[in-house]
Amino acid sequence: MKLRARALSAALTLTAIVALSAPVFAADKVSLRLPWLLNVQSAGYVMAREKGFYADAGLDVDIMPGGPNLNSTALVASGANTFGTNDVGQILLGDANGMDLVMVAACFQRHPAGVVSMEKSGIKKPADLIGKTLAYTEGGPWTLTKAMLAKAGVSLDKIKLVVSPSDQLLVNGSVDARTDFVINEAVALDLQGHKTSSLLPSDFGISTYAEVIFAARKTVDSNPDLVKRFVAATQKGYDYAYAHKDEAVKTIVGLNNQLDPVQQTKQIELQESFVYTDFSRAKGACAFDGAVIGETEKTLREFGDLKTDVDASKTYSIEFIPAK
């Protein structure tokens, strides 16, 4: 019995020594720069971190807010951040200015930019804007709106245009409609008791993506495994967030107590149809079609600020989306 006990003790000691001497692999530290302040628009990334999907992929992810003076494309291009999110247009413009960014996933299949009006205005289609007053500011919503109107055969000279970022003009009836992001601004107005309706370019033949994940080309080329792990874990985060929307809202409001939980709940419910389409349900969350990138390049060239030549086919890679 003593011999067996000694043998067992020796075996346990050896096991402990082997365990102590086994290599410990540190998680890869990466950062993700959001396009704007933290809210449920970023639910997929937050839940990927909070539920351990990034950790399981060997990643230690710092999710960092964007803002007026924090441009995700410039910060990723400079090496300050590993990954960023933004819409296709901003990334194409960055590449046209020498940033050399690569899109690796697209989590909002439909772009939430469009035209918001009061429901009583009766604006349901592009032609309904004829003779109306439309407020706009330069940027993505206005570019996509111009493309939508052109496709519908509605000339801008048939609409009264006003440059203004104010929702108050819409509320007090000074304008009939304004360009905006329908997943947040329209929800805020609805919660204030103003019933709204929206025109989305994505419903009228103008295709592009939002919440696109991108990295510097040198990151994609030198560490493709890192990119693949990040995209796969993010996909899991998106699926979890939209299967557990109440938990996602609670988590994000806990991280940013300036948010209204009621608004965030309504926003994430609205966002679901932007994230999950027939295409993404078949291919997986954040999957994308390179042809849409090409369409966006043409839209930007005709209606936006893209003046420099850029080869859209070199600005993305679909190889990092997990096979479904």
Rank of each mutant, 00 (worst) to 15 (best):
N223W: 00
I213R: 01
Y238M: 04
Q267A: 15
K283W: 02
S222H: 04
K218F: 05
V292I: 07
A287D: 06
V249D: 15
A287G: 09
K228Y: 00
D305H: 09
D278F: 01
S280N: 11
I252F: 02
P261V: 05
F288I: 04
L306G: 12
G304A: 12
A215P: 01
G304I: 03
E247C: 05
A233M: 01
K283I: 08
T251V: 10
Q267P: 05
E302D: 15
I293S: 13
D225R: 08
E295T: 13
Q263M: 14
E272L: 03
V249Y: 02
D309Q: 12
F279C: 14
V262A: 09
D239S: 12
R281W: 05
V253N: 03
P261I: 04
T299G: 07
Q263P: 03
F303A: 11
D305S: 15
A215F: 02
E302M: 14
R301L: 04
N257I: 02
R229Y: 03
D260V: 04
L270E: 10
Q263I: 12
F274E: 06
E272H: 07
E247F: 00
D221A: 08
Y276R: 11
I293W: 01
A285T: 05
Y238F: 13
K266L: 10
N223I: 08
G237N: 03
V292T: 06
F303Y: 10
D309V: 10
E295A: 15
S280T: 13
D246K: 00
D260T: 02
T308Y: 02
T296H: 12
I213V: 07
A285G: 07
F230I: 05
Q267K: 13
K236H: 06
G294R: 06
L300F: 00
V253Y: 00
Q271L: 14
Y242S: 08
K298R: 14
T265N: 10
I213W: 00
L226T: 14
Y242Q: 11
L259W: 00
F303C: 03
D309W: 06
Y276T: 10
E272I: 01
A248S: 08
A282N: 13
F230T: 05
K228G: 12
N257S: 11
G294W: 02
F230Q: 06
N257K: 09
E211M: 13
N257F: 00
A232N: 07
Q271A: 15
G294T: 11
F214N: 08
L306P: 13
E247N: 03
F274I: 04
D309C: 11
V227G: 02
G294N: 15
G254P: 02
E269D: 15
K218R: 12
D305W: 03
I252W: 02
K307V: 14
V292G: 07
D239L: 11
N223E: 14
K218W: 04
T219F: 00
E272V: 05
R217P: 03
Y240V: 07
S273M: 12
Q264Y: 01
V253F: 00
V275W: 01
V275N: 08
A282Y: 04
E297V: 13
D278P: 09
F303E: 06
F214V: 06
E272K: 10
K283Y: 05
T265D: 11
